[in-house]
């Protein structure tokens, strides 16, 4: 798609806003609709758009295969790790109350970290699946 100059310019303009919107959905999920899952998908959509317009090879320079594979596991590890942190601080598995000084503060922190883990894994998964499907060798 190297010759579509309109697509190239518009997508270059749009991608930062897509990423920003994804971050908004991620960190505003406590107050409005949204959360890690939706944010991860939108975040991945920005990279997929880049890959569609500029080619998978160029997209892989921004986000190499090793990086997505590590992020893939990191999200799950973060989620499970928050659970183990609950045990470490004297609660049950995935008990957020003990993570901070107050119970609601702990819940805030726990939900924040857990949603971040979900978002990371979902974004990495979507990018991986798309790139692997369309690139075959990446």
């Amino acid at each position: 798609m190297n010759n579509h100059s309109v697509l190239r310019v518009v997508s270059k303009f749009m991608i930062p806003y897509i990423l920003l919107f994804a971050l908004y959905v991620q960190f505003h999920g406590d107050f409005g609709p949204g959360g890690g899952f939706q944010a991860g998908v939108i975040f991945a959509a920005a990279f997929i758009l880049y890959g569609l317009i500029y080619g998978i090879e160029n997209a892989r320079k921004v986000l190499p295969a090793t990086a997505t594979r590590i992020l893939l596991a990191l999200g799950v590890i973060l989620y499970a790790g928050v659970g183990f942190a609950g045990i470490y601080f004297g609660g049950n598995y995935l008990d957020y109350n003990v993570l901070a000084a107050t119970a609601t503060g702990g819940q805030h922190l726990g939900i924040f970290l857990v949603e971040f883990g979900v978002g990371t894994t979902v974004a990495a998964t979507m990018v991986t699946i798309f790139f692997v499907f369309s690139g075959q060798d990446f």
Partner: peptide, 29 residues
């Protein structure tokens, strides 16, 4: 202490379910 009840159910009351879902997505990848 979070205004969005859906988020608090998903991430806290049903934390195990969401952990399972994350693992499912991970497995798909």
């Amino acid at each position: 202490g979070i205004p969005n009840i859906v988020t608090s159910i998903l991430a806290s009351y049903r934390g195990y379910d969401t952990l399972g879902e994350t693992v499912v997505i991970f497995t798909a990848a």
